[in-house]
Amino acid sequence: MNDASAPRSGLFPFAETASAWLSQLSTVSPIMVELETAVGAVIAAPASSARAIPAEDLAALDGWAMKSSDLVTASAYAPAMLTSLPSFVAVGDAMPDTCDCVVEQKFVSIEGPLAEVRISAAPSDGVLRAGDDVADGALLFRAGDLIGDTMVGLGLALGLTHLSIRRPDVLVIDVTDEKERGPSTAVVCALIREAGGQVMLDRASRSVDSLTARLKAAEADLVVTIGATGGGKDDVAADALRQAGALAAHRLAIRPGTTTALGRVGKMSVIALPGRTPDAFAIALVLLLPALRRLTGTKEPESRSLTLKRKIASQIGFAELALFERAGSACDPIAVGHLPLSALARCDAWALVEAASEGFASGSAIDAWALGG
């Protein structure tokens, strides 16, 4: 990717620029890992059971193992009298070969060589049949799903030991003024992990040489810098990206996040996010998360059509992020273009108003994506 000249307006059109940058990202190769280490990764290939669980019929309760055909008419008023004593089984015991049900102790009385049973039973009553938990070859996990702690526990219980995953390495370079990890970096790192990325955190001072050196030394599937993207004397992100590799675009026609820069260093794609938390959050939604979906091979989440309670006004020429509070199938716009921190805390849905749009009238439908589950 060669350095690009800025348009006459000084701003790169968001949709076209984003599409060109994203198109250079490829899905990372899958790796096979132990299941316990797969938490937070994206499943690369469907995982199926290698055997039926349980492998044989087991008792599902403590009681007497019997043949249901011997108990068809048994009741408290007309007990079944068995001349052959049944076997007692505890939960998890293998069922005797000739038995297909388990009767609770309170319904059975043993008198010498006889057993009195005061209840009827059907085949499989009180029994966990072979393959009831999972059939041989049954699908356990789907490709593209993010694996969490609960899934790992279930997988181990079902006999799964290894899993094919994709977990792209994402180098995050903090170039903010914060002495420690700032709020923007914390938010971006959390979003990366939630999308299946492996975060590697680094820092650079606000100098071209420092950030250039970090970029040249980087080894990752994607590099994200945070801060120093503006036009001030110590806003060095664009110059450092140009010196380390190639600057594709700096200053996009999107609000918030106008000062974002995009480029490449060697084979690595680089996105330079603004240091302000609302700007970094917005560009993470519309550019960073789509980049991670390309790297992990996952699909874009489905949008939902919501009815606007109030109109949205947007300036033609700028794509603008809109945040909403949902109320059933309706939504209340709480911020457009400028995103106060309070709006970030309250919102549970978002949409991108395209640059060619003047907005949406009250009562019209808008396609929005959920936030926070």
Rank of each mutant, 00 (worst) to 15 (best):
M268F: 00
I334V: 14
G159W: 01
L323M: 12
T150K: 02
P13E: 08
A135G: 11
A195G: 13
V336K: 10
L341F: 06
T17F: 01
T258M: 10
L156S: 13
A284N: 07
P333I: 11
A195E: 15
S9H: 10
E34H: 14
G197T: 02
K67P: 02
A186L: 13
G144V: 07
E36N: 11
A345F: 10
G231A: 06
G137C: 02
R326E: 12
P340Q: 05
A313Y: 08
V39R: 15
A253E: 14
Q243P: 09
T27D: 00
W369A: 07
E104L: 07
F281G: 12
Q315L: 12
C331W: 01
A59V: 01
L352T: 09
L339F: 10
E178W: 15
A186K: 11
A18I: 01
A335I: 10
F318W: 15
A78H: 11
F141R: 08
D133C: 06
L22T: 10
D209L: 09
A246H: 07
A356N: 14
L211Q: 03
A343F: 06
L273A: 09
A115W: 11
T307C: 09
D235M: 03
A240G: 05
T98Y: 10
D209Y: 00
G92D: 06
I53Q: 02
V33Y: 08
G372R: 13
M1S: 07
V117Y: 04
L295Y: 07
A41P: 15
V33T: 08
S314V: 10
D221N: 15
A135R: 14
D209K: 04
E178Y: 14
S109F: 03
N2F: 12
I312E: 08
K299S: 15
S69H: 05
S305V: 03
C189H: 01
D100H: 11
L247I: 10
P278C: 01
K309G: 14
L287C: 12
S329R: 14
Y77D: 12
A217P: 13
V28S: 03
A18K: 12
I316T: 13
P7V: 01
A345Y: 05
D239P: 00
H250R: 11
D279K: 08
I226M: 06
W369C: 11
S364R: 09
A18L: 05
E16C: 02
L285R: 13
A65S: 12
